[in-house]
């Protein structure tokens, strides 16, 4: 059987990305459908991630599926030393598809190789988080009307932030210009800059973050400087307050500018930005629901035509 798992979208073609975005748009038109009536979706969270889990479970519920799973591996046999393979094989007996978050990198790839049912990677350590990338793409597409020829500014932790790395790779089909705004300690790793050069993606690097730097931005993608990524906490204290977006910085920016953030935010976006019409991070999270509905259906082999022709809308 063809493996329909989703481990990364780095390999997806432009056509496949556009196809999934169109499917997400159909779900936004009507998220409540009974397409998955009678199916069981398992959500296995070996590492807690409340918002990702709720988004996936809501997506499954609104499609009419039933959801099983766990949110804390301490209550499962993996705490007794059960291998990932055994857990996956066991759950495959019950569920039609497995949504999995794991703290180890490569766990989703391995699970997709051993499982008889499709796996959706809901994050594997610092490696991949494809559903986040999909909702980022959908949010950009929705707010700009296109993915082509955009100025995308990535701000904050560009060294450890997997969302910015995945977004960068997924955007390669669409002729973007990237601006990397980060402190020296957290700047974009050389391997991703090499990737940009190899793919012909233009990029500029900045260390300053003010209204002048972001004047030409179409998308401002803010990220959290994560405490848990630092081995040296004094270093964290030194850089955490450097890249904060304030409402006053948005005055001279483009009217089509939208501000994205994978959430949760700590203090990198001041609260007075929330009421600015350019703030888009909460709608972005909402878009995650439709993107995940599209991903679940695609992994189960449900085509866009079946979604279009769906007569079971409720």
């Amino acid at each position: 059987m063809e493996n329909r798992s989703l481990v990364t979208i780095a390999d997806h073609s432009k056509e496949k990305i556009m196809y999934l975005l169109e499917m997400a748009r159909l779900f936004e038109e009507n998220p409540n459908r009974k397409i998955l009536d009678g199916r069981v979706v398992a959500t296995l969270f070996f590492e807690p991630s409340t918002r990702t889990r709720l988004s996936f479970e809501t997506a499954a519920n609104r499609l009419g599926a039933r959801v099983i799973g766990f949110t804390d591996p301490k209550v499962t046999s993996s705490s007794k030393g059960e291998t990932l393979k055994d857990t996956i094989m066991m759950v495959s007996n019950y569920a039609d598809i497995i949504v999995m978050r794991h703290y180890l990198e490569g766990a989703a790839r391995y699970a997709s190789e051993v499982a008889p049912v499709p796996i959706i990677n809901a994050g594997d350590g610092a490696n991949q988080h494809p559903s986040q990338t999909m909702l980022d793409l959908y949010s950009i597409y929705k707010t700009q009307g296109t993915l082509e020829n955009l100025n995308i500014y990535l701000v904050g932790d560009l060294k450890y932030g997997r969302t910015v790395h995945s977004l960068l790779m997924a955007m390669r089909h669409f002729n973007p210009t990237f601006h990397f705004i980060a402190p020296e300690e957290l700047k974009m790793p050389e391997e991703y800059k090499a990737y940009c050069r190899a793919q012909g993606i233009r990029y500029e690097e900045h260390t300053e973050f003010d209204e002048h730097v972001i004047a030409e931005a179409d998308i401002l993608y803010m990220t959290r400087v994560q405490r848990e990524r630092f081995t040296d906490l004094m270093e964290y204290e030194r850089v955490k307050d450097v890249y904060i977006l304030k409402n006053s910085m948005l005055e001279g920016t483009r009217p089509n500018l939208r501000i994205l953030h994978p959430l949760p935010r700590v203090n990198e976006i001041a609260y007075d930005v929330d009421n600015n019409e350019k703030a888009y991070y909460f709608q972005q999270a909402h878009n995650g629901l439709f993107a995940r509905q599209a991903l679940i259906c695609d992994c189960l082999g449900i085509t866009i035509d079946e979604v279009r022709e769906d007569k079971l809308m409720c």
Binding site: K85, Y103, L104, Y110
Partner: peptide, 12 residues
């Protein structure tokens, strides 16, 4: 990479 699944999953 110590956080790679291959360093943590027996029999793989």
């Amino acid at each position: 990479n110590p956080k790679c699944i291959t360093n943590n999953e027996p029999g793989m």
